[in-house]
């Protein structure tokens, strides 16, 4: 099978699926699921209390042993200062400049904070991090981030953990159209392989998800399904999708029916 590679944050990857490390039945099952999915990037949340005295070390070692690029995230952070502190700890623990910037602005929807995320991105970029900012599909927030120097954007598909798929595909498409040179990753809300394929068909560079694989009855089988869906969606995008029409269009020309005689024409 031909393998097309792509680059993000200074690294070359062949998979366009990134997955989370939480809520699997066990670390061993996580390793199996990652391997079956083909994912080469795994995101890990690093909380301040786990970094203290390296209490999370045993689990981090299992994650490091997966032979993936680790994308630490700032889940659970409430302020810009917390984000920067966690990012610095993550750089030390995982020896990477990558950081997924997650700053929640609303506890019910877990919607990202659009003001805080821009400030935090500026602070992290100034410290030399490669920032993966988690945002809604808001075009203007994306503009501020790109202007600040981000070359990666991670809009949500739908609220975290909801599994609803792409709530606003038109807005993802608008981001793709307006920022053709930015790495565009859909993160959160992906519940089924078809959702991941849909994001890839829109021209996203990758998708990131956790719950749909980790909490599947068979995480390994679901990891494989997502790997295939992401590949299929990317190939479809590269092959050029047909534009949907509002009416039927026979594959075989119906030469005996002049087009102006068709019903409704």
């Amino acid at each position: 099978m031909d393998v097309d590679t792509w680059t993000i944050g200074g690294r070359t990857l062949s998979s366009r699926l990134m997955i989370g490390s939480a809520r699997y039945p066990s670390p061993a099952r996580m390793a199996d699921a990652v391997s079956a999915s083909g994912a080469e990037v795994i995101t890990v949340s690093l909380r301040r209390e786990s970094a203290k005295d390296r209490a999370g070390q045993a689990f981090w070692d299992l994650v490091k042993g997966l032979d993936c690029h680790v994308l630490p995230n700032t889940a659970g952070c409430r302020t810009v200062d917390e984000v920067v502190a966690i990012a610095q700890m993550a750089r030390e623990v995982f020896d990477t400049d990558w950081i997924k910037l997650e700053l929640i602005g609303d506890d019910v929807t877990l919607q990202p904070d659009p003001v805080g995320v821009v400030r935090a991105a500026e602070a992290l970029l100034a410290e030399g991090f490669v920032v993966f900012p988690y945002i809604t599909e808001d075009l203007v927030v994306a503009r501020y981030l790109v202007d600040a120097g981000c070359d990666i954007l991670m809009p949500w598909g739908a609220p975290i953990g909801s599994g609803q798929g792409l709530a606003h595909p038109d807005r993802i498409r608008a981001l793709r159209d307006r920022f053709p040179d930015v790495r565009l990753l859909v993160d959160a809300g992906i519940g089924a392989p078809s959702h991941a394929a849909a994001a890839m068909e829109l021209g996203c560079d990758a998708v990131l998800l956790n719950t749909a694989i980790a909490r599947a009855a068979d995480p390994v089988g679901m990891g494989r399904a997502f790997g295939e869906a992401v590949r299929a969606g990317r190939r479809a995008f590269e092959a050029g999708l047909m534009a949907p029409l509002p009416h039927a269009e026979a594959s075989t020309p119906t030469t005996d029916v002049p087009f102006w005689h068709r019903a409704g024409a």
């Binding site: 909380r47 209390e49 786990s50 203290k52 005295d53 209490a55 999370g56 070390q57 045993a58 689990f59």
Partner: peptide, 10 residues
């Protein structure tokens, strides 16, 4: 919680 820390509950 994947954390090896027996400090009191948070």
């Amino acid at each position: 919680v994947e954390r090896e820390d027996d400090a009191p509950p948070t």
